[in-house]
């Protein structure tokens, strides 16, 4: 998902932790108690959370770019306002998530540094380009749809700040998928040419959307521990299947064809079966070689560098004002 790259194993051996504390911690998690920032927690739990929450945050922030690419070209004022509000929401969601990560003792500046240096990962989906207006609809429908699948169970995550951030995000995000689908609906109904644009967008976004859920359970190394810690509630494959089952009928309603000739409905299981994901492509994009990886990072770096003088000025002003107040206080004494 937004934290796909999480599935790489920690190489360093964790320090030996007091078995009693670990057991007591696990008992709290099992009892569905929320773990709060100042509570004792195993180092692995903390690390996993910092990594997962910050990857999630980075994904929101980088995710502003592909859609932001169309704000200036939205076809109507209504669509422009909706898109701008949506991209803005993503910034807000990144902010909530950074705040949740910060409760674990890592600063926004450090997290930003990790993103800009390329050390931290973000969701592979945002390394694909938005080529036509239909892509904006496809992202809302598929990418936000996939995100919601993942985020709803995260509302029950064992870590309090993450769970609370997710509740807020899910509440706000409910309009994102709807605006995307409605946008596509309007297009397929309007003309054959627009319907072709929508089909083209689906062709390009379908597989990358399925990749959002991360490696298959057989290859996902962190899943079991994250499930035990109740950071994760469903496996990658379970969520992916849910997504496919929900999305295929929606595609059919739009009169579109899913670009997968192995797609078929299994009457016995009630699930849609689908073809093999190109995991080589997935690994390649995660590793930095997708169509837009370099552009995305360059855009974030530029914004950060261009804004440095502004952030410095705000801090300098605040220091000056504090000094003046101090001086005035001394003068008055």
């Amino acid at each position: 998902m937004y934290t796909q790259a999480l599935n790489a194993r920690d190489t360093e051996a964790g320090a030996v932790e007091d078995a009693d504390r670990v057991a007591a911690f696990q008992a709290r998690v099992d009892a569905e108690e929320k773990i709060e920032p100042n509570d004792w927690m195993p180092e692995g739990y903390r690390k996993t959370l910092v990594r997962q929450i910050s990857q999630h945050a980075h994904s929101e922030i980088v995710g502003m770019l592909p859609e932001g690419n169309w704000i200036s070209r939205a076809p109507t004022l209504k669509r422009k306002a909706a898109l701008l509000a949506k991209v803005q929401d993503e910034g807000g969601h990144g902010l909530y998530l950074y705040s949740a990560a910060e409760t674990l003792g890592v600063s926004r500046e450090e997290l930003t540094e990790q993103l800009l240096s390329g050390k931290a990962k973000y969701s592979s989906i945002f390394n694909y380009p938005t080529l036509t207006w239909a892509d904006i609809g496809a992202i809302g429908w598929l990418v936000d749809g996939a995100a919601i699948m993942n985020q709803i169970p995260l509302c029950r995550c064992s870590f309090g700040p993450y769970s609370r951030a997710m509740i807020r995000v899910c509440k706000e995000e409910s309009f994102h998928q709807r605006q995307g689908y409605e946008l596509l609906l309007e297009m397929v109904r309007s003309s054959e040419e627009q319907k072709e644009m929508v089909q083209d967008a689906l062709n390009r976004w379908w597989w990358p959307s399925l990749m959002m859920f991360g490696p298959s359970d057989t290859d996902s190394q962190h899943s079991a521990q994250s499930m035990a810690w109740k950071i994760k509630r469903f496996t990658n494959d379970e969520l992916r299947q849910k997504f496919v089952d929900a999305t295929v009928p929606q595609a059919h309603y739009l009169g579109l064809t899913i670009p997968d000739d192995k797609l078929s409905f299994n009457e016995a299981t009630g699930h849609w079966e689908f073809g093999e994901i190109d995991w080589d492509e997935f690994m390649r994009v995660i590793a930095g070689n997708g169509p837009c990886n370099r552009e995305r990072l360059a855009a974030r770096k530029k914004a950060h560098a261009d804004g440095a003088w502004v952030r410095e000025a705000a801090l300098a002003y605040s220091r000056k004002r504090a000094d003046r107040r101090e001086a005035a206080r001394h003068a008055a004494e």
């Binding site: 803005q88 950074y98 804004g307």
Partner: peptide
């Protein structure tokens, strides 16, 4: 102003 979205000096200012 819409051109700024995603490129502002801080995340707070983006919003």
């Amino acid at each position: 102003l819409g051109e700024w979205c995603g490129h502002a000096p801080t995340l707070e200012e983006d919003i």
